[in-house]
Design a protein around this nucleic acid. Structure first.
Lengths: 266, 266
DNA sequence: GCTTCTAGTTTCATTATGTGAAACTTTGTT
DNA sequence: AACAAAGTTTCACATAATGAAACTAGAAGC
């Protein structure tokens, strides 16, 4: 539904989103079933997107899937527009120091978008994990960012939550979450106390600009079988140090506006 | 240039590509300078793309950069359309067994698109992450795939190469590369003998379908200071085993066509 | 302080593009 | 062979994109 009369580009992108949403290759007829567009129109969109390699088409199976051009474009986006490249060395240090799973996330359209990660051991950073989205209202990183959002934006963001009850500890309405956000704001860090997945806990901190706007958030994740929230709280100072450092770098950096063109060359 | 009268969506995506190509935030006027579109038209495209979060706009600096929506979309593309998820366990095994830098790449529009990577225990400092693109004619993975392309597609691909001389070992014309490709085809694997970057060498193998079509390629990278091509050639059997396994999995897998529907609702 | 220039934004008549019902083709089924 | 379902093409029509020109905001010059 929706699909405001926004223009052709918007409609095409909506179709793209829809295809991506399936999480697997989809046939034309499936897409047609829950599409607001008539057959010919949808068909033409798919043709266009496929021609642009934003979708790929498997002729044997007659299915569409998101295309590789997206992967290239996203690499540029990730590198230029996310916190990840700036935060990278800091995540490395933190991860090495603590040996725990670290997540770096940003708020995107009311949802948590993970942009980098360090596994307890491997130093791989890629959007095999980056690009994943999650709910804001029941994750450590999400709540950490929400807690520092100006009222207007917070109201917006809260509107966009699904309030689905993932576990019996999930906050399922704006009112109770607002209470939690106040506590987080006072405390400076948030917890995820099995609110999203049973057994999974985390501590998270926002990354703030000097003016207090949240740029992203940082978290350490563990399990109830390995540790407890009380124990994890002791990591707060280390996390805070890292979050501050990233925030500082992000502002300094905020684009030296060097005329660095050359890139892919040597 | 280019910008065939393809339709609005194509034009908008062309603008998006262009912005991404700068590798840094760009001002409107810069884009205007090398844009085929008049001011008002380009302006409207940027507005549309920004509104769709395919671009992000920094009001302070008046600059555009690729937007975060791409990162979400790409995650779906990477997961569904690339070889990476299928190859993952195999890369893990291979990387652990050899302890060297492993790359997994695919051919995308005549270029090499890296879709996964494992770092060496002693990591070589090199650029490469998922989404990164590189030339096909002077990389191990690129040549491995080209060598197994059917003539028509090969001709196409060769047209798209820049033939830039990166080092004095780079093949800089189709004719000499074709000779190399024949040798690679006969041998079953390719080398990169410092053809792209001085001091960087690699051995690569194509990942083939049972019908012999290249799906991707796999490589081990190292440096001339640590090893030699002769020595690396001994890794060929291990690589081959992995490449075969990935190819097999990719075909078997080729989508169980489960009727898993439900997703976003719930 | 006023003028001129430049970069960015808006307007609006014109034109090109996108739209979708319906006809058609291809592929699979009984 | 007849039928049905899925996918593709056509074409009169409506909508949306186009871009020259007018406008506005800021910066640089006088």
């Amino acid at each position: 539904m929706a699909a405001a009369g926004e223009g052709t580009v918007a409609k095409a992108l909506e179709v793209l989103d829809r295809v991506a949403g399936y999480g697997r290759p989809v046939k034309f007829s499936e897409l047609l079933d829950d599409s607001p567009y008539p057959k010919a129109t949808l068909y033409r969109f798919l043709q266009t997107l496929t021609g642009q390699r934003m979708l790929s088409y498997d002729p044997d199976r007659g299915t569409y899937a998101p295309g590789m051009r997206l992967v290239r474009l996203a690499h540029a986006a990730w590198q230029q527009s996310s916190l990840a490249p700036i935060a990278r060395p800091h995540l490395d240090t933190l991860s090495e120091r603590l040996g725990e799973t670290v997540h770096l996330a940003q708020l995107d359209n009311g949802q948590v978008l993970y942009v980098d990660k360090r596994n307890a051991r491997t130093p791989v950073q890629m959007y095999s994990q980056a690009g994943k989205v999650g709910p804001a209202y029941c994750t450590g990183v999400g709540k950490a960012m929400l807690a520092f959002l100006p009222e207007e934006q917070l109201a917006d963001a809260l509107e966009q939550q699904s309030w689905r009850r993932f576990t019996d500890k999930t906050f399922t309405d704006p009112a109770s979450l607002r209470g939690e956000l106040l506590r987080i704001r006072a405390r400076g860090h948030s917890f995820d106390d099995e609110e999203h997945e049973p057994g999974i806990i985390c501590i998270a901190l926002p990354i703030l600009t000097s003016s207090g706007r949240p740029l992203g958030a940082l978290s350490i994740t563990s399990t109830t079988s390995r540790t407890s929230l009380a124990e994890m709280e002791q990591l707060a100072p280390a996390l805070n140090e890292t979050a501050q450092a990233i925030g500082r770098d992000a502002e300094d950096w905020a684009f030296p506006e060097t005329q660095t063109r050359a890139f892919k060359g040597a």
